[in-house]
Each structure stands twice: as C-alpha cells, then as structure tokens.
Amino acid sequence: MKFPYNEKVLEHFRRPHNVGKLENPDGKATEGSPACGDMVSVYIKVNPQSNIIEDIKFESYGCASNIATGSIITDMAKGKTLEEAKKITWQQATEALGGLPPIKAHCSVLAVEGLRAAIQNYEEKHGIIAEKVPTTIEIVNNRLKKVMNPLTGLDVVRTNLIKKIEIDNGKVLLTIDLPSNHQFAASIREEIKEKIETLWDVKEVIVDFIE
C-alpha cells in the first residue's frame, strides 16, 4: 500500500500522543485556520517556580498532518521551560516527523501556533507579558513569516510575496505579489488578516493583490 505520508507521520496520526483536554489548565488556546478549516486546542500545566511545562494536551479538528504535528509538538514541549517551548519552530516539528508534503504546511503550522498561543495565554494571565509596544513594519513582517505560501510550503516573506507594507494610524496595508484570481489568494488573505488583526493597536488590515 502507498500512503500520502511517511511511516512516522502515520504512526503519530494513528496513535497521537498527549490527546485530550486538561482540567483547569494554566494556559489554553484554540487556533483555527479558515483557509482549510482545521482547528486545534492546546492546554498546558506550568510549574510556577521553574516555568516548566509539566503537562500538555491537545485536541484537533483537523487533517492527518494537523493531528501528527499536534502529537509531536506536545511531545517536544513537555518538560521544557516556557522560553524553550516558545522557540520550537514548525520546521523542527516537521523535521521530527521526517517531513510533510509542502502543501500541508499550513495545516501543521496551526499546531505550532496553538502551542505558542497557549504559552502566551499563560503569560498574559500571569502578567509575564512584555509592555505594549506600537506595531512596526518589523513586527508585521515577523508575523507574516508565519503565513505559509501553500504552493511552496515556505512562508510568504521568504518567498518574496510581500510587495509592500504600510502602517497608518492603526491601519495596516499590504500588497501581495499575486494576482487576485490566484488559487490561494483568498486563503492567504484570510491567514494574513488573522495574524495581523490580533496586534493590540491594529484596527484594520487591508490586503491587496497586484492585479
């Protein structure tokens, strides 16, 4: 038989680790991607002295790569400090899984975001969040690095799709180097909006295409 994923991915998909919900979690988050419809929830228990993630669970309303990434990333985060866990990248998770099809990038990146968002949720609840800094082009650019170009599986910054970023009074204007009738235009727009709109001082995000 020939399956669309490697044996390691299939193993995590068949018997995912750390599945379920934690009662009274210290941090939790749900991330969803309107582009493909997947959703993932992450729950963490944190030791307040050591800042170590003592327990972690996830739930997935998603496809195989979403479930497998949720499984591996919760394995990777367990026993790590919040700072260490925050630094786990999508690339590291994919490597640990022995690779994923590029087009599946954004289904799996969601699990990584779920982990980061759960940590952020913990930090906000416990007042560990850094002081509010005004949004800059650099901050926007960093967030855009999390938006995948499904054609290549690489982010939209690295694949030079971002033509222009303008910030004006809480309004973020972006121009994408793709025609508006491109097969992924709508999903890329949705993902960009999702990422940028959550910045505390952003009121509106406008995503334009070149034609």
């Binding site: 068949r14 582009a35 998603g62 496809c63 195989a64 979403n66 479930i67 087009i103 289904c107 992924f184």
Partner: peptide
Amino acid sequence: EGESITLHLDMRGFSVSTGSACFSKSL
C-alpha cells in the same frame, strides 16, 4: 475532518473521497 477519515479508512483498506479542503490539491 474528511482527510482524517479517508486516511484512516485507507489504512483499513477502503477507498473513498472527501470534499474537505485538506484533501484537494487546491486546498
């Protein structure tokens, strides 16, 4: 999600398809 269903079924020897975005080449 449909692709999760079809992949599980595939591993059990059943071929079916889904309308889920995750299953299609165009997403």
